[in-house]
Every structure is written in structure tokens, then in C-alpha cells.
Design a protein around this nucleic acid. Sequence first.
DNA 1: TGCAACTGATTGCAAAATGCAATTGGTTTG
DNA 2: CAAACCAATTGCATTTTGCAATCAGTTGCA
Lengths: 175, 175
Amino acid sequence: MKTDHRSGCPINLSLEVFGDRWSLIILRDMIFGGKRHFRELLNGSIEGIASNILADRLKRLMELGMLTKADDPSHKQKAIYSLTEMAITLVPILAHLGAWGRVWLPVSEELSIRAELLERGGPPMWDKFMDELRHEHLGAPSDTPANATVRATLQAGYEAVVARKAPEARREPAA
Amino acid sequence: MKTDHRSGCPINLSLEVFGDRWSLIILRDMIFGGKRHFRELLNGSIEGIASNILADRLKRLMELGMLTKADDPSHKQKAIYSLTEMAITLVPILAHLGAWGRVWLPVSEELSIRAELLERGGPPMWDKFMDELRHEHLGAPSDTPANATVRATLQAGYEAVVARKAPEARREPAA
DNA sequence: TGCAACTGATTGCAAAATGCAATTGGTTTG
DNA sequence: CAAACCAATTGCATTTTGCAATCAGTTGCA
């Protein structure tokens, strides 16, 4: 692991962790998209990451303590990636980032509805979501029924927008 | 200005704005360090940006609407850079980023005291700080006396730490 | 058994970004 | 008039990124 830093400034050190074009995209897909496998991350993100970059970033994020990797018991060569607490606590930052982007950048409606719902939910919703992630990724106990999760709420919002925008063009989901 | 984006996702678009190693460092120095001139940014940041990268990023941030440039009336070849409202509204994100880095990364005490004070001040302090920045950079009216600014508070905290850590080793400030 | 599809990667190579040092044309200061 | 200062720019080596092809092992299915 790299141990020489440009400076001990918290903002600088944070940038050294995810101040590149892909790390935060991968974390976004794991956090909000529920992606856990290499292929899901490779094919699932609309930005189209290359497989060598993905492999490199996953390795790097593991070295930095943001992710862990484990064998999938159901499939000998399948690896399952998990968020650590360090990564889960990025949720408020991602929420703020999404809110900022919605205001200032040419976002598309489908892809920003999740950010809008998360912004409206505010810190209580972020806390609830982080608890869900702890349950999914760290095995922490949870008392939320699966159909009442924050992720399900966000996904339902996304699908409502898609249905409203192009009701006649919908087909079976690609994923 | 580049108009083709990887996706319309707010997080992705935000990353396209400052998802590199230097843009957010420059904005940090302008926001928290009060740097307005090329030389201040070049020599002032401890991370040591190269002049060609600084010139490139300033130009890029202007094209993106985060900064504006004006002639310094007191000095014909001096340019003064100003934050736009778009950049000023990054303050809460930077506050969260600093708070996250303080928890998870090997920050130095001197360089993280500002983040700590900003975190403790919470959203009311961030709002006050953003108002100060609007006054300084956008010419908005302000009713805060100069010695009661958030920036002065943060700077005083920094100097207190430096004084406490190495009281015998202090000299005239280099800058 | 055989074979296609899928798993998490790795390799080779071109293009782009970065880092560093020197330099530019102009301005201000002493 | 010379030294210092100003915002950059240039040239060049190194590093990072992006893309396509490929890899060896695993699984599902006929």
C-alpha cells in the first residue's frame, strides 16, 4: 500500500482515495445499485468501465480498506465484493454530491431521481440506508422488511420515471 | 467546452467536474485559504502543483463555470480569480469530505483542525461561510465584521495548533 | 461427454494526462 | 536600468488511462 501522501490535509487524503474518474463510480454502483460481482460492475454501469481499470480499482479500494473480497459459496470462481464501514459512511457525501450535481449540471431525469429522493429523505433516510448496507455487507442485524428498504424506494422512483417517460417503448429489462 | 458526457448521472457529472487530482485542491485553497492569484495558488498549496497543471485547471474550471477571472486594477498583469455561486455551494461537500477524511485517513493535526472546526460548526457555520464567500467573490452585501469571519475563526484555530505543537520552533511565517 | 456461455481477471498497445524544469513576454519595484 | 515578479507556455520523460483481445478455470445444458 502506498504510504507517501502529498499532504495530511483531510480533503487531499480523501481525494487520494477516490479523486479519480472511476473509484467513486464503482462505489456508487455497489451502494445504490447493489452490485457485488465483477461482471455486474463491468456491464452494469452506464459509463462503461474497462475490465482492466475495474480490476485495478477493486484491488486498490481493497488495499485502502474500502472493500473486501470473499468467495461466493454458490460458485467456485465467483468473487463477492463487500463494502466496509469506511465505504458505507460515504453515503452522506454521495447524497450531497448528487444534490449539487442536480442543481448545477445537465443531469438526466431518470438518473437523478434517486438523488432527488435521497436529498428529500435527508439525514434520517441516509442513516436508514447505511444501516441497510451494514446488514447486507457486514452481516449486521436489521429489522427492515426487504420490501421497505431505502434501495427499494429509490428503485421504485427510478422505474416510475422510466414508465412515465416512455410507457410505450418499454420492454423486458435488460438486466 | 466539452459537451459529451459519460452519463447524465449527477454523481458522474460531478466527478467529471472535479474528479481529478487537482481541481478540488485548487478550490479548497481558494475557499479556505482565500487564494485569489496564480502565484498564491502555485506556491501556497502544500501539495505542490505544477504551473502548467494549475494553468490548465484554472482554464478548465472557468469553462465549467466554477471560476471567473478579472484584471487586478492595482497591477496590470495580475489576474484575480473569483469563485462563482456554483463553486461556493461546494462548501457543504468539502465539509463532509473533510469530516470523512478525519475519521478514516491519516490526517495531520495542523491540517485537519479547520475541518474539525467546520464540522463542529455544522450547517449554520457553513451557511455563514458561504455568505462571506459571496461577499468576497460576488460582491454581495455582508454584515459580518472582518474579524468575526468564519475564515478568521478557522485560521485562528490552525495557528493555535501550530503554536501548541512547536512553540519553540516558530519563526516568521514563510508566506 | 462435449461445448457454449460465463467467471474474474491479464496482456499488449496507443493515447492522454501528469510532473518537472526551463523559458516567455510583459510589469513593477527599487 | 536591472532585479524581481506576473501569468502563463514549451519541451520532454514518465505515468495513467482506454480499448480490444485474450486467458484459464467453472458452470449449465444437451
